[in-house]
Design a protein around this nucleic acid. Structure first.
Lengths: 368, 368
DNA sequence: CTGAAAGCGCTTACAG
DNA sequence: CTGAAAGCGCTTACAG
């Protein structure tokens, strides 16, 4: 980093500042930049199209020398198989559809990009469907399915079951990431959220808390349901009163913020709260502070996910880390498998939760 | 919202808690769920394949009655043209490639999802390339290009110029969103960042600030450069000393946080800071607070974007709103146009910045 | 090990 | 207005 650099002189601004700038393309790029096809390559090599084609399939049987020749020449003249022609024959598309919702939660953009990057390494391209308005999801999924993705991955979407069924009817297997549909035949990758909830209960009870609260998010989400279940059951098992539950309704800052108001109106104020995830927890904390309470002095707060923001000093959120690495790598492995065997039996992978990261939103031991 | 709901009894946990669950698919979905093709539809209707095909193209000439018949029957038996076969002929793919980087900035996930949703309405599917590791971008873009997208949209990526050139060589036009490459023939949609910088300078000077600082982000980004330019030039024009500049290096929380340290070591402390964007500003604020300074008492801070987080009470960031709506709708319109006319001349749209939203990180008027 | 031929599912001149 | 035919760029039995 360097300082003390003074801005360039003002005259530059004019050239940059035109409000709408139009210019004609200088180099009219060769209008018919024809792609090189197998035929071209075959002619170039003096071989048949069949042989050339076979050279690209390791399992196909070609003279090693021939293969080398083809591959070399292909790279030299820039031949790349047309994926459309390919999938017309092979019925594989190398496309994985990614259905995303809940983009408001910083957890997902990261998952999305990493998943995309990892799949690209396997030669699979990601086709994206975003499910903001739930009504349009179905259309979007239809459009996606017309591309016959080898696989679709559903990222935490509260998907209408119709869409899911459409996938299976279209013959595209579906992996649920970080959310389970409950269907018997489903493929899923998720954290063990029950165990996560249990850990939080233990932690809070060990700290000496007695009046627990769970701030629930989207009621249809398995993550929400399981965290709540683990938390509440363990609290009971530890001899503490059954935690209260506030239904905040969604995995969002706003939901958490609003839940704080609801909490403040409770007849008996809880002394510790487990929120369905980090973004809800952060909203809750800000809501609670806005109302004049202190965290953790008046109330301890725990989240779930350990998104980057949780570590920022302004939040310093105590939270359960979600094992994203593992979830991701298992998903990719799973994707590879399902892409080649779409009819594999349903299988759900539950990854143990990461550690509970103790930060500033819960009291120190022995201060209660 | 409702409270006081007590968790369900514990026995449920066992069934949910198996660590790895395997089950065979019950309904072996008809292994060869053959798609219905034009041929099927034609036979069903007793027409020729040609006629049937034509019915789907409004510009093709078919008897109106025939068309109705075809369309009706198609929907009835669930016919959908195979896009791969289609694009083999038409050379259009209805695919737009979306190259994304900087996913750390909450501004982008939203842009991404909305863009995706809007394009889907036009029948275009989004193929995603994420550019985290810059080295792998080129490969990913290659893979993308093999799908011959009708268009690629580059979202704020610090793209190697090679990748961009590859797009144009592959014949896919490229729109730069919220970042300009400076190439003469480029298509771009961006906010007028110079004007934005000017507004901030005016605002801060009007407030009475005299020692200004700009916290720069990625030096290769046009947004960064232009905001800085507008800000610094206007400050000078207003008779204030040339703003200092700290090169934070990237559009990230961490960069802003680190810049705060650098700032603290300056011989003369600035009294107001304009950060390259909101996420940098938020990092800067937290950094500055960690060092024991108060915002805005010791230093005023202004950001750029007005991401949702900027409005959270913990930040209450004064910032320039980015006109996302307009940028998005222009991009979509632009996309439609370029998809049908890939050789349209380069054109860059500059949208005036949104208002400066005054919140809590800048002093009140007259307190200086 | 290699080549000629058929065919994937479409669209689009070309005749009628 | 409609149909028969060619062809997009590939892969894959089928012979040799």
């Amino acid at each position: 980093m360097e300082c003390d650099y003074v801005c360039a002189a003002p005259q530059l601004s004019k050239s940059l500042h035109r409000t709408e700038e139009r210019m004609t393309t200088l180099d009219q790029k060769s209008p018919s930049r024809r792609r090189v096809t197998v035929k071209d390559l075959a002619k170039d090599l003096g071989m048949s199209v069949s042989t050339v084609s076979r050279a690209f399939y390791p399992e196909a049987i070609v003279a090693p020398a021939t293969r080398t020749l083809v591959l070399e020449r292909a790279r030299a003249i820039g031949y790349k198989a047309n994926p459309y022609a390919q999938s017309l024959i092979t019925k594989r598309t190398q496309i994985v559809g990614l259905v995303v919702a809940d983009i408001t939660n910083p957890f997902y953009p990261e998952v999305m990009t990493r998943l995309t990057a990892d799949l690209q390494v396997l030669g699979m391209n990601v086709m994206l469907v975003s499910a903001n308005a739930t009504d349009k999801v179905d259309d979007a999924v239809q459009l996606l399915l017309s591309y016959q993705p080898d696989l679709v991955i559903i990222l935490a979407a509260a998907l209408s079951s119709r869409a899911v069924q459409e996938c299976s009817e279209a013959g595209s297997p579906c992996i649920f990431f970080n959310r389970l549909s409950g269907d018997a035949a489903e493929h899923g990758v998720t954290c063990d959220n029950i165990a996560g909830g249990i850990n939080v209960a233990d932690y809070l009870v060990d700290l000496g808390h007695k009046r627990l609260l769970y701030v629930a998010a989207f009621p249809g989400a398995s993550t929400n349901v399981e965290r709540q279940r683990g938390f509440c059951e363990r609290a009971l098992a530890r001899g503490v009163a059954a935690p209260l539950v506030i239904e905040a309704g969604s995995f969002s800052y706003e939901a958490g913020f609003a839940a704080a108001k609801t909490m403040a109106e409770l007849p008996e104020r809880p002394d510790a709260v487990f929120c369905a995830n980090d973004i809800v927890a952060i909203g809750f904390i800000e809501g609670v502070r806005t109302l004049g309470f202190s965290v953790p002095e008046d109330i301890s707060v725990v989240g779930f996910d350990d998104i980057a923001m949780a570590a920022w000093p302004s939040h310093a959120l105590t939270t359960v880390r979600q094992p994203v690495e593992e979830m991701l790598s298992i998903t990719v492995e799973f994707a590879r498998k399902l892409a080649s065997d779409p009819d594999a039996p349903g299988e759900v992978h539950r990854i143990p939760p990461g550690p509970l990261i103790e930060r500033g939103t819960t009291r120190r031991r022995g201060t209660l």
